[in-house]
Design a protein around this nucleic acid. Structure first.
Lengths: 348, 348
DNA sequence: GCGGGGTGAGAAAGCGCTTACTCGTGAGCG
DNA sequence: CGCTCACGAGTAAGCGCTTTCTCACCCCGC
């Protein structure tokens, strides 16, 4: 395309008016034929319009439709980090469901920064999306929380729909994940396998997801009368590197009373695995490891990772379905399921 | 939000007209103050408008701007599968760069189906995006190719910009990846490590990316006078499961003359790793493995994977930069780099 | 003191659609 | 055989912006 002689050979897309003229009907009739309004239009005209549209390779200008109709068909998805498998799986679900609904999805990344998330939501308003989906847990007591809440309230008041994934603190539609029950079940399984000395890589405690999982885990252990040594609970980032660092800390303090460590999500667990290995230890043998989420890769690490399955793609789909439902509807938590693999062999 | 009594308590977002009225200026002046046109506007008025906008929490309706200006600020990204780390990394790059440019990115998934990809591109036109980025390799000789080409040509003729990632067959702007040279270097490295019996999991041969990597690899071996037994080249899907299946085939045929297998991408290599393990074999010891891409997880599998690094996030960024450049510009391939890890220990 | 040019605000014409409204036509009814 | 409707095509008024065009005003030079 010649950039400097802008209009040379440039052809603008056909407009509805072009179609109407080509079909020899009015604009209104063309519009009605193409989008199927509730008004009926004579079959002859209708096919004439359809033919003309096909001939001209017409495709309605979505922006124009949006301004005329006063609403769009876009769903805005805000994630912490798209390359994180947790979020990319959710995104895949949202995109798949959006496709079914003939909606468009736009994406933005908050990079785990609450301020950025707030900024994103603010600029999102310009898009006038029909739905905003916020994935990625929020820190409790975050200073920007009130502002975000206000922003989202305004948005809903203007007719938009907000769905939060795995964070219900704010009181919008939410798809919740059975984090605590899952962690509790995991604890029970591990105890059943014979484990007694527990540690946990808790990630960022202010993250609701992390906190819920931790608490569920503690509760599960409590049922067997086991409690965790506070020294065995280490905080770090909620990421692969966070898991790596956390495990390193644990190792350097000495693994004496620890026979299994629970990382509150899989990417952390996977990082922990590597840390263990880099320390010359043998994961699954010297110390067991369990994670949470069941992201695809954990079946391919070695040892394969014991974890709690969260149907992430379904979570994404459900988010959009909940958004589109007329009434708040099914907000029952997404069930999780313990998956025992090689990283937590039965204690002999 | 009360769904059935639609307008109850509903508040529509402030329009430019609201702002203009609140500031006591005309629509034109308000518009000029807020978007900085080339016309200058009196400082007093300007701040009055800005204040009013802030007070009303005004945010311009992007759709309306798009129709008035005749162009949008959106970049449409089409990937095969968002949950695949290869694509999600690229997507992360595109999103990051789009953020810098204050552009909006929309996403769609072709699910590796050329027909679907074509359909997506067709419906994309309605969005009138400024840029379309197609990631995900295309099959050579695909029947839909001509149609896609036509569609994209039309789109460019209408002023849009197409960027293809890792597939230059079509003659649009492209981000090419040094696939062949990278594979060639990998072959050289492996030979240097002492390997002599090679197999390759070629994925889908019609995929240009796969073919390039395969050919580069063959060329690299040829330099050392080594050739691959055609029986040791197995086709399967370009996915994790494809790698798993491919390796199973290899195992069942017998690994006699094979001491290393090259999977043309990392997800396949990772699947192969698991297949090996499930067959009771010890990857890296019984048979070595190498992949391509250096997706994040390969540092966390065991053995850590020897691969060829492709800076995927940069590829995404570069795609958008190339699109936005006035002239086609830097289309030099993105360099790749061999990373030797534990899955290919030196042959003793 | 007066004409000319530059400056900058406002009026208004779009952009490509949707959707009341209007209004002619033919069918159904008494 | 008139009259009322229902039907459905067309007209036109928007939707929220941008941008051209118009025009009042002020400063300058002679």
């Amino acid at each position: 395309m010649p950039e400097n002689i802008p209009d040379e050979g440039r052809t603008t897309p056909a407009t509805l008016e072009d179609v109407a003229r080509a079909a020899g009907v009015s604009l209104a009739t063309a519009s009605r034929s193409l989008n199927g309004s509730n008004r009926t239009v004579n079959e002859t005209y209708r096919t004439r319009v359809l033919d003309a549209a096909a001939r001209l390779n017409y495709s309605p200008n979505l922006s124009a439709q949006a301004v005329a109709r006063g609403s769009t068909m876009t769903v805005a998805l805000v994630v912490a980090d798209i390359s994180d498998p947790y979020f990319s799986s959710i995104a895949a679900g949202v995109v798949a469901e959006a496709d079914r609904e003939r909606m468009i999805v736009t994406m933005a990344a908050s990079e785990r920064d609450p301020q950025r998330e707030l900024d994103i939501v603010r600029t999102l308003r310009g898009q006038r999306p029909k739905v905003i989906i916020l994935a990625g847990s929020r820190r409790e007591g975050d200073p920007t929380e009130a502002a975000l809440r206000r922003e989202l309230d305004d948005y809903e008041r203007a007719g938009g729909r907000v769905v939060l994934i795995s964070r219900n603190e704010l009181g919008f539609r939410t798809v919740t994940i059975d984090n605590a029950p899952g962690a509790e079940a995991l604890a029970t399984s591990l105890v059943g396998l014979g484990y007694r000395g527990f540690a946990v890589l808790i990630g960022n405690r202010e993250l609701k997801t992390a906190a819920d999982r931790y608490e569920g885990f503690v509760a599960g252990l409590a049922q067997s009368g086991i409690r965790i040594d506070p020294d065995h609970v280490v905080r770090s980032a909620f990421t692969r590197d966070g898991g790596y660092d956390g495990m390193r800390q644990l190792v350097s303090r000495g693994l004496d009373d620890i026979d299994v460590v629970f990382a509150v999500n899989d990417v952390m667990a996977v990082g922990a695995l590597s840390a263990l290995r880099d320390a010359g230890l043998n994961p699954g043998v010297d110390v067991a490891i369990a994670g949470f989420d069941d992201i695809p890769t954990v079946q391919d690490v070695w040892p394969t990772l014991t974890t709690v399955r969260v149907p992430l793609v379904d979570v994404g789909r459900k988010a959009l379905r909940i958004a589109l439902a007329d009434r708040p509807g099914d907000e029952s938590p997404v069930a999780t399921e313990v998956v025992v693999r090689d990283s937590t062999p039965p204690v002999r």
